[in-house]
Design a protein around this nucleic acid. Structure first.
Lengths: 214, 214, 214, 214
DNA sequence: TATGAATGAGTGTTCATTCAT
DNA sequence: TATGAATGAACACTCATTCAT
């Protein structure tokens, strides 16, 4: 109804994200997106070349925003021994992902498909560990006396499978978990943070010189 | 061509698993399955009521096999302080999942969709932590002096997000990881085990009475 | 961009002709015309009621111009025995059609469709042999001693299928002929004129009294 | 209704030809073809890969049949001086085309479009003047004393524009001509043959030495 | 005059599923 | 068991056309 260009486009995009997340990219229907977005189906094609192009734009925007987030982070002082700092980092990071949990769902699903393209989740990982950030992190950690084995490959693997993946999984599964295991969402969040702390964070702390020499 | 009843059915099932994994359930086509399985499309409907029923059978069979695996495990003596035992458990567990990695892919994808059904991956979790096993585990751990907070909820959350999920993720992503990060598969396996050991296993060990009393 | 009324309208018309000729009326797209004409799609509808109306205007204009051409011709003295006169007539006629070859393409295509409307190419034929012209021609020919069987029907059939049609065909096919039979365009023109002369013109000459009595 | 493979396929093909001829390839609708052929729309795609593939098959079949016709012809003795022979040849040729007049309509329309493909009507021309036939014709004509300028290019041009094109045009336009010029079909046929005889055939005869010197 | 946004009705094509044998 | 033929309901995408400004 509203002849408001920007609004229509954004609405379509928002519904598409929600739809792809709920039914999967292949399970989602253009008809359904149009109906839910309250726009004419043809209008979708006025703004987006094809279904796949919507997906591409979703991922591209996500990567850009993630990049901005990361850049912001590593301009501050990093202190992995400061529990407050870690919690603050963790919360900002979680809020960012929480706001984009539907995109994360889509990202996982699409990453699992077999095709020649790089899995979008690897793209996200690369954004998080882009050259500058990684270097800054490694340097900071070294300065703080961390026993870094200097193997970037190990860092990447460890961070991906024991940090990023658990966190993303928590975000995409928490609603269903809360529902099917009949548990309060705040309680679940605490349980997850406890698990995260006692595994991944504990691992980081175990590498501090304090811990070692202390 | 081949008038071998069982063979046709199994072939269809095998190809369906591979197809669902590669393209997603919605992206997979009955035509494609028939062609790849070298059977007539209508024959699929002779053996399976519908596309969804194939999926259901896949999950049901998987759950049964997982259940058998788990039962076998907890008949033996559990010793979380014995590194050899842990590695042996880990290897058996990994081999089992490795042989079913396509099913894991499907399971994740389907678990992410929005519907009223319980996510199949929760079903898998329940199989792993079915009453008897969990009880056995908890009892054993208590006997071995573990500081168990007795909260099954915490155990479930921790094991799911920092054990099952990382392991499954490793299995479903390792091929692509090896390809896109250009790293040898064996090397990657070592890196992952190192990450798993220094986070999840370290967490378990940290809970041993030795640590507490020591 | 350009706020030049006439220019936009003419441009749209010119592009429409080219587009209809290249892709056929049904194959041509309003979007494509707008884009190629560098105008807004809606502007086309400001100048033309619909796609079909563009076509109608094209044919109407063509018929009017053809009519003017023909009128001009039969004001001069007709002399079918004068080779110079024939060549001059032929050249003027050819140049006129050559300048409108895209319209001829459209005309043929549309004439072949099945509908109740008179094929536009018949309209063109009627313009060429409109009452006055035909009468003038017949009279002149009679005066010059031609063995006219006085059958206007025969004249029309002969002129259409062995004069107009070959000439139009030559015009609409010469570019492709030159390309696919790898022959120079001037050479092709000579070959065609030779063919035309030895069949159609020869036929006219064979009807002159000179030839017969001589 | 009838579960008769061959029949359905042929029906679809026949209706497609008729539809393409009536509305043009782009104007024809798959829905319309299905409905008129009394088959399910999806069945069309069971037999043909796409709309364009139907067209391709139509042309391919036509070319094969034309090739067979031509081959048959040049096994007999060619005698361009024998009016009976000419008329017999002409009739067979006309009947063949008459039976395929819808295909001719499609062929012309498609030949006029702008694309990189060779116009199908050139393909037809090549079939008619395929190496063997052309050679046979030229040899025969030479033996019979024809003043052949030996230029195959001239022959091709002359035969295309003053023989094939007029004949095809007659076939595709005769129904409409008869209707819009209110003339009996048999009468029209006679008029056309008269026109054809007094132009194209006259041209051939004019080249025989016998006729001229005899 | 001109345009960006919007739309109803299609358009070729595909899909899971069923039928007849 | 197995298959070629057949189908209804979608499916992503397009089109000529109109609206609001």
């Amino acid at each position: 109804m509203a002849r408001d260009s920007k609004a229509s486009r954004e609405k379509i995009l928002a519904i598409a994200i929600s739809m792809f997340a709920r039914k999967g990219f292949d399970g989602a229907r253009m008809d359904g997106i149009a109906k839910e977005a309250n726009v004419n189906k043809a209008l979708i094609y006025y703004y987006f070349k094809s279904k796949s192009m919507i997906l591409e734009e979703i991922f591209k925007t996500f990567d850009q925003e993630a990049s901005t987030l990361v850049s912001g982070f590593f301009q501050d002082q990093i202190d992995l021994t400061d529990t407050n700092w870690i919690r603050s980092f963790f919360d900002t990071y979680m809020d960012f992902l929480e706001d984009r949990k539907d995109i994360l769902r889509i990202m996982i699903t699409e990453s699992l498909k077999s095709n020649d393209a790089e899995p979008p989740i690897f793209g996200f990982l690369k954004v998080l560990f882009q050259q500058e950030s990684t270097d800054a992190l490694i340097n900071t950690m070294k300065q703080q006396g961390y026993a870094l084995d200097d193997q970037k490959e190990q860092i990447l693997v460890t961070e991906f499978f024991t940090d990023i993946i658990p966190i993303i999984s928590y975000i995409v599964f928490k609603d269903k978990w809360s529902r099917f295991f009949d548990i309060d969402k705040q309680k679940l969040k605490d349980l997850f943070f406890e698990a995260y702390k006692s595994t991944h964070i504990a691992y980081h702390l175990s590498q501090t010189p304090d811990k070692i020499t202390g």
